[in-house]
Write a protein that binds this DNA or RNA. Structure first.
Length: 380
RNA sequence: GGGAAGUUUCCAGAGUGGCCAAAUGGAUCAGACUGUAAAUCUGACGUCUCCGACUUCAGUAGUUCGAAUCUACUACUUCCCA
């Protein structure tokens, strides 16, 4: 396994600690920092694997909870695993369902032993334990699998946050013990809500099992961005250099840069594809709500400087028309563009880090996009 | 030529004396979206000096304390019979 999965750190930005590296997996290399598109139900909504490749997606995310419910992890295993099942031969990471414990909270009952789930599809009852989740993730066969964790809500009090983190720690130990598939790298997840002490405690425990990489969870759950950055800064000095650092569920272009500036190597987020389906595009000059009336007669591309299929071939007026008429193609084209935009951002970021000009690059980009950045950068 | 029904705010369409600036769809306009229960959700949608005021429900004239709602006539639309 060590031969198949390891992280090669190439460069660390002296000013910020931003990193560039290469993550080797059984399904190929991933250059970092990397944005990972989310394909919860074994599909990045609206996009073909071929198109994902054309947009330079190196690795995608899927989800144990959702695939367990439908079609059932055994079906995926029978198909030959997730890669074969969905026709994607590059790396895959599966989330454990820990986030669904959080986002589907009304349907769950959390106990130390595990979580009683009520299916959001048909109300049927299920019991998830760390062991069960490992069985599912092992069957799915992703390259990277996340531990089963409990993501506590923003606003949780100290006592509850500590309880959730202790549970996460115990579950980690159980996940590690139950994990049998040698072709998969298990990532622990740091929790601890927004309490410095708990974050550090969680990290300390997680590091015992962070052989291949580490996830940082429980952030970007409704808190102000500054709060999230503060938590990352608490962790940054203590994160081992020889493994990738994965910030779960982030994010927007500004959050990506802010994350990189705090030592993050991997990101995933629904944002790009969701806002695409809802008619918004990320462009080098800021967010563009293509659905809006002002683009009715705008026959220019979404982003003049973009090389994606969407920008090379279609105009804003056409995209608006597709959105306006409810055509599926709108979702596809905008998703392609938005993913390309973020993968390109990470490529450019990586290049800048390797060339010792990360802060300058980030400043320039943020200014162009009119982003509000923190004191890590000059553009505030 | 004769008879019947109808005309409501962008469209469709409720409303048949006060609780009506007028239900509900749609269209339109705008906003939100961060490990996906999201091709979803939210708001606006007569005018204004917008916690209040004003002008509306084909037109005109009436009845009434009060009319989109009742009466008369006019105009237009649709259907049926010749």
């Amino acid at each position: 396994m060590q031969e198949k999965f390891y992280f090669e750190l190439q460069k660390v930005d002296k000013k910020t600690g931003a990193r560039a590296g290469i993550l080797h997996t059984p399904h190929g290399k991933i250059v970092t920092p990397v944005y990972m598109p989310v394909g919860t139900q074994a599909t990045v909504k609206g996009i073909l694997p071929e198109q994902l490749k054309s947009v330079n997606a190196q690795i995608i995310l899927s989800n144990a909870y959702h695939l367990y419910l439908r079609p059932g992890h055994h079906v995926v295993a029978e198909a030959g695993g997730l890669h074969t099942f969905m026709g994607w031969d590059r790396p895959i990471l599966t989330d454990s369902g820990g986030f669904q414990v959080f986002s589907l909270a009304k349907l769950n009952k959390i106990q130390d032993e595990g979580v009683y789930f009520q299916s959001h599809i048909d109300g049927s009852k299920h019991f998830f334990t760390p062991e069960k989740v490992m069985e599912i993730e092992n069957a799915l066969g992703a390259d990277i699998i996340m531990q089963f964790d409990e993501c506590s809500a923003y606003g949780s009090d100290f006592a509850y946050a500590r309880k959730a983190l202790e549970r996460t720690s115990i579950w980690l130990e159980r996940c590690a013990r139950a994990h049998t598939n040698e072709n998969q790298a298990l990532f622990p997840i740091v929790q601890g809500n927004f309490y410095r002490e708990l974050r550090l405690k969680s990290l300390e425990y997680a590091l015992q099992y962070a052989k291949y990489g580490i996830g940082i969870g429980g952030l970007s759950v409704g808190e102000p961005k500054a709060k999230m950055y503060e938590m990352l800064e608490i962790l940054q000095p203590h994160l081992p250099q020889n493994i990738p650092h994965y910030l779960m569920g982030v994010g927007t272009p500004d959050c990506l840069l802010e994350g990189v500036a705090r030592g993050i190597d991997m990101f995933d987020c629904v944002y790009a594809t969701r806002i695409a389906r809802n008619g918004t595009a990320l462009t080098s000059s800021g967010k563009v709500v293509v659905r809006n009336g002002q683009y009715k007669n705008d026959f220019s591309p979404l982003d003049e400087s973009c090389n994606c299929i969407c920008c090379k071939n279609y105009t804003k007026a056409y995209l608006r028309h597709l959105l306006n008429t409810g055509e599926i193609l709108a979702a596809t084209l905008l998703s392609i563009h938005n993913i390309y935009f973020l993968t390109k951002l990470m490529q450019d970021t990586r290049k800048a880090i390797l060339e010792d000009r990360f802060v300058e690059f980030a400043n320039h980009f943020a200014k162009q996009m009119n982003l509000a950045m923190t004191t890590k950068f000059d553009v505030i």
